[in-house]
Amino acid sequence: MRKSLFIALAVLFSSCTNEDTISYLLNNNNETLQQDNTTNQNYQYDIYYFRVKK
């Protein structure tokens, strides 16, 4: 915990102005940082068929 707090302090002063960090925190408003299994899975394929001209 002490180590985590130290890291947190270091990160705070080094990257707290980082827009993404702030954005990340804003987006976690009143949420815990624990993840559940919410997932998004997507896949796609393209197939191009070639033939000899007739």
């Binding site: 949420e31 815990t32 624990q34 299994n37 899975q41 796609q44 068929y49 001209k53």
Partner: peptide
């Protein structure tokens, strides 16, 4: 050669599958 056909297959799933989670902290 000539291109005869182009197929595209696509699948997207947007959902929530699990709920088991223990709190770590609150921001």
């Amino acid at each position: 050669l000539t291109l005869s056909t182009v197929l595209q297959g696509n699948s997207i799933s947007v959902d929530e599958n699990g709920t088991e989670a223990a709190a770590v902290t609150i921001i």
